[in-house]
Design a protein around this nucleic acid. Sequence first.
RNA 1: GGCCCGGUAGUUCAGUUGGUUAGAAUGCUAGCCUGUCACGCUAGAGGUCAGGGGUUCGAGCCCCCUCCGGGUCGCCA
Length: 596
Amino acid sequence: MADLLQGWKRTHYCAEPAQAEVGTEVLLMGWADSWRNLGSLIFIGLRDRSGVMQVTFDESSLPKDVFTLAETIRNEYVLAVKGVLCERASGMVNKNMATGQYEVRATALKILGAAETPPIYVQDDLDAAEQVRLKYRYLDLRRPCMQKNLIMRNKVTQVTHAYFEEKGFLEIETPILCKSTPEGARDYLVPSRVQPGKFYALPQSPQQFKQLLMVSGYDRYMQIARCFRDEDLRADRQPEFTQIDLEMSFVDRDDVLEVNEGFIARLLKETLNYDVKLPLPRLSWQEAMDRYGSDKPDTRYGMELCDVSEIAKACDFSVFSGAVEAGGSVRCINVKGGADQFPRKKLDELSEFAKIYRAKGLAWMGLKTDGLQCTFAKFLTGEQIAAIQQKAGAKQGDLLLFVADAKNSVVYASLGALRQEVAKRLNLIPEGMIDLLWVVDFPLLEYDEEEKRFTAMHHPFTSPMDEDIQYMDTDPARVRAKAYDMVMNGNEIGGGSIRIHSPQLQEKMFETLGFTKEEAWRRFGFLMEAFKYGTPPHGGLAYGLDRLVMLITKAQSIRDVIAFPKVQTASCLMTNAPDIVDQQQLDELSLSIQHE
RNA sequence: GGCCCGGUAGUUCAGUUGGUUAGAAUGCUAGCCUGUCACGCUAGAGGUCAGGGGUUCGAGCCCCCUCCGGGUCGCCA
């Protein structure tokens, strides 16, 4: 069988040839990015992952068969071109092209693969529907901007490996077929063939395994780990995603934070050449909620929340006073100079926006030049209005937006989201700035209205703060955790905690979460058993790699930094997964499908 | 599970109160062309208007259902 390449070897990537090589013979391989046939002169843009080089075929200086073959080239044909690297004459330089001062004058050509007309254009300024892009993902991924994203993703994982290797971390793989854990997200289940009726779960994270590795003395562990959660998708959430997962022994919170500040600084330096100022600021969870209405605050701009409950509770506006009396609050944000930028129609839009977050409505007070525009002024005394304006720092021209609710969580969520929305609309978010901070001192538990019990805010292995352990029985909501999140420009990019390493405390935690002792041992017995045999204090952190790369590349969707992502229905438009399977496969697994 | 937006040549879109044979650009095919680079010129092909049902003399357009995609709330320890 004759070899297709017949010994042809690529000498350069398309965009690689340099000034010093002008006049030398090069051999390029790639895809036809464009073709322009002028009759007896043909121009081909030849593309590979490095870029595009123009190749010329000149009828007058080529054997007939080579030129005839070149005439058949169409977009996306795969070519091997031998030729001489030439400098273009000054009038022919293309300034829009990185290699625009060169071209390769072809002397020989092989067509390595023909191509049908592609359904989408392979170019950056493509506005094809994402549905089409994802069906033909292999073509979409040929586009330079997509290649740039995946190359950046590779850069991130390489820096990650290098940094943690230097710091003495070992990469250790953990299982993909795991035991289902009831707490947390919904598990993807895998039926067992050899044990009918039993199931594995795909890991939501390597959490328990990495803790067991600490018990085993591996001391510093890291892994770039695939994780799975069977929950609904978002622009920044996929059912399978990748974590940079790490765990350390013999450490306290500040040790973990220090290693990770070093990491993020190194990462942003090597990827974006951005200098991060260390140490990173720290904000307690309570302060983050009070000032920004979010546990992942975007602190690139102000417009902080202001609590006016004290003034509001005494007023005759029952929406305000009632909320405070019921244990909630009244808070506002001050949109500086916003009074004239938000006419009634836009305020109604903002009101609708707030309702998405369960706010019952939006009250406002605009300090306009022609007087006060306020939805509730008639219920308040002049002193009360003045007190609110003073508390919020409102000046002439400002706009105050209020949310009152019996639940502080609603006030925080709606006003926090409103703050972001208004900032976006008014372009208050500085371009090019990267804002990093830690949010610390999270509550250990939160009350689940549906299940009528406390659940772990982080996960059930998170250590309570030593001084708060005393409240675990009497006032669980008051207990703070040794947990921390790293926040970048309003996005949670990583989170972790110091773990419980005492079997007694771990048992107590499960008790607080409402597990019976038997249940806790059935589900997590292996972990509590392990803790009995000598467990170092330990803690760790995990980053969402996809989200991190998305922020670094400024991609609009997490799908743009994952080679083969899934759509909102958790299916893959290219392979058509998930799909039905043969009856025989079901039989082997002792499964039967209930059809409606 | 809820709310919002979208689906018309390969692709991106237009399509008037519901009225003749559904258009444009680009891509594609063929011919001509030696300096193009969004090449140019000439000619041509290309449609399940997402699918189903309904209203009507008549539906791309109005109504109902379904499917597909996007955003989002819930959910995501």
